Computed example of a mutant assay.
Amino acid sequence: MEIRTATEQDIDAILELNRQIGLIHFEHAPEVFCPPSPQERDFLLNAIGSEGRLFCVAVLDAEVVGFLTARIDINEAIPFLTRLPICRIGSVVVDEHHRSRGIGKALIAHCDDWAKARDACQIRLEVMSFNERAKSLYETLGFKVQSQIMAR
């Protein structure tokens, strides 16, 4: 398996992965997520071309089987929060037919290296409460609950 920077040529595979995760999220939380739509293509193409962000893909046998997006944030406005660089993972997606094969772990390891090279003091991500499989992976990799988002 290879982890590399996403390119515009990967867009169809990325859209399919995004559709898979989008359907799961919409089914479990329709008050938060919209069903997959054609507008996602432009959004994802812009993300691929965005400077200063990580958008990488996992490739297995010439097939894109996962992707991860991340960025580095530095607080400059809130005086009671640290000003140290923090890596925020936006998305981690693995193809439904390739899960439990170490792909998500490899994507996060790649992100960890990327974040360390940018002096990030921490990696953060948000995971939906219904996503038990992802929560289990993140806990295995040392992530701990730091806060909770509550809604009504």
Rank of each mutant, 00 (worst) to 15 (best):
C111V: 08
C111T: 05
C111Q: 00
D112H: 12
D112K: 05
D112V: 10
D113C: 13
D113K: 14
D113I: 15
W114H: 06
W114S: 08
W114Q: 04
A115R: 01
A115G: 07
K116A: 13
K116E: 11
A117W: 01
A117G: 02
A117I: 03
A117P: 00
A117S: 09
A117T: 07
R118G: 01
R118I: 04
D119T: 01
D119I: 06
A120P: 04
A120F: 07
C121M: 13
C121D: 15
C121W: 10
C121V: 14
Q122H: 12
Q122Y: 10
Q122F: 14
Q122C: 14
Q122I: 15
I123H: 05
I123K: 08
I123S: 06
R124E: 04
R124N: 05
R124L: 08
L125G: 02
L125M: 03
L125S: 04
E126S: 11
E126G: 11
E126W: 03
V127P: 04
V127R: 00
V127S: 01
V127H: 02
V127M: 07
V127K: 04
V127C: 06
M128C: 06
M128Q: 02
S129W: 03
S129M: 06
S129C: 14
F130D: 01
F130S: 05
F130C: 08
F130K: 07
F130N: 03
F130E: 07
N131Y: 03
E132A: 12
E132S: 07
E132L: 06
E132N: 05
E132C: 01
E132Q: 09
R133Q: 08
R133G: 04
R133D: 02
R133W: 05
A134F: 00
K135V: 01
K135S: 10
K135T: 10
K135F: 03
S136L: 09
S136G: 08
S136K: 13
S136M: 11
S136Q: 09
L137H: 01
L137P: 00
L137S: 01
L137K: 02
Y138Q: 00
E139T: 10
E139K: 05
T140R: 13
T140A: 14
T140H: 09
L141C: 13
L141P: 07
L141E: 11
L141G: 11
L141T: 06
L141H: 04
G142N: 01
G142W: 04
G142H: 10
G142Q: 05
G142F: 01
F143C: 06
F143G: 00
F143P: 00
F143T: 03
F143W: 06
K144C: 09
K144E: 09
K144F: 08
K144I: 03
K144T: 11
K144Q: 11
V145I: 13
V145P: 07
V145T: 13
V145M: 05
Q146T: 02
Q146W: 07
Q146F: 06
Q146C: 11
Q146P: 14
Q146Y: 06
Q146N: 13
S147N: 11
S147F: 12
S147A: 15
S147Y: 12
S147V: 07
S147I: 12
Q148C: 15
Q148D: 11
I149W: 10
I149E: 15
I149L: 14
